[in-house]
Nucleic acid binder design. Structure first.
Lengths: 174, 174
DNA sequence: AATTTTATTGTTATATTATAACGTTACATT
DNA sequence: AATGTAACGTTATAATATAACAATAAAATT
């Protein structure tokens, strides 16, 4: 079971996440002869600014700040489409939002654990789960092609806070 | 593994599906002292006209035909909200669409198998799957509260057609 | 280097999905 | 019948996403 859950929910040097993601993206683009243009790079970077999914219009706002000029929706969606295509990010359908993929390249299908409190999302690649889904599909004569698996609840930090006083303190939010 | 997959993908007396759904809804509403008003009933019925999810605006169009007058979005969404609340229908996030629940009342969390070709959606209640997801959540210290599980691929009928000539004939669609 | 081709972005307009706010009607209880 | 509540009607608008076409930049070819 490959996951970034620990990393997501513990204090860590987050600039390393971002840098790692950007250099993985560079490699992947070189390998597939795709161009990581400034817009695309910025969108990817923004999707790694936190371990929380962002919507297209949040990206638009933040990109405007980052680049100093306003950028229309189609450009944002094009960058999103490009990054999705390379497997560098994922779409979270329940939220209409997007998040960086912690292990692009590796052939995995994804399960997300999304916190209702702080909005964090951890990704899990779970072989047992995928096998089970494949089995269930076979049994139903269903030809499985892709999947969207989204769990909602409380992340480790917010679970703890919920046991105790109340909602997580803003500092704990990540 | 409880599922309506067989039923969905075989020719059957579909009016029985609709009638069964409506009378289950009646019972459930009586039990919970909720009112199954004409609008709500019509929406539920429309969501059972096929084993395919429908969007809110498709519902709006069809409701207009059914009732002879045009009905504004808020009314549709209110009916949807009501039916979701009672567990009589489900929302399929990846499609922004809604579908009747074949086993309301039973405490289940749902997996959908959605056909990319004909648009049919079968629901599966899979204990093993839910246990596995619970375990994975526990392992990650994640407090699981709800889930959206959507598989995409080819239903039994369209799988067969794909093996052979091409897309399923319209008559096979259902 | 100039030309051609292709990929990317800009721009405008609009489609699609969903909700807010407030008024009106219908129903249920007393 | 009077009152309170739930449901619906109506208007406006928010939020998410894409179509269509023009302009530009980068890459490939000559």
């Amino acid at each position: 079971m490959l996951t970034n859950s620990r990393l997501v929910h513990q204090p860590h040097d987050h600039s390393r996440c971002i840098n790692a993601a950007l250099s993985r993206a560079d490699e992947l683009c070189v390998a597939s002869k795709a161009r990581l243009t400034p817009t695309r790079k910025s969108v990817l970077q923004l999707l790694w600014q936190s371990h929380r999914p962002l919507g297209a219009y949040q990206l638009q706002d933040q990109l405007a700040v980052l680049s100093g000029k306003s950028i229309a929706p189609p450009t944002i969606y094009r960058a999103i489409e490009f990054l999705l295509g390379l497997g560098l990010i994922h779409r979270i359908a329940s939220l209409n939002a997007y998040i960086g993929c912690p292990f692009p390249g590796s052939d995995h299908s994804n399960l997300f654990m999304i916190c209702n409190q702080c909005g964090s999302a951890a990704e899990v690649a779970h072989n047992g789960l995928n096998e089970l889904l494949q089995k269930a599909s076979d049994k139903a004569d269903f030809t499985l092609q892709s999947q969207a698996l989204e769990l909602f609840g409380l992340c480790p930090n917010c679970s703890l806070s919920a046991d105790q006083t109340g909602p997580a303190s803003p500092e704990n939010r990540q």
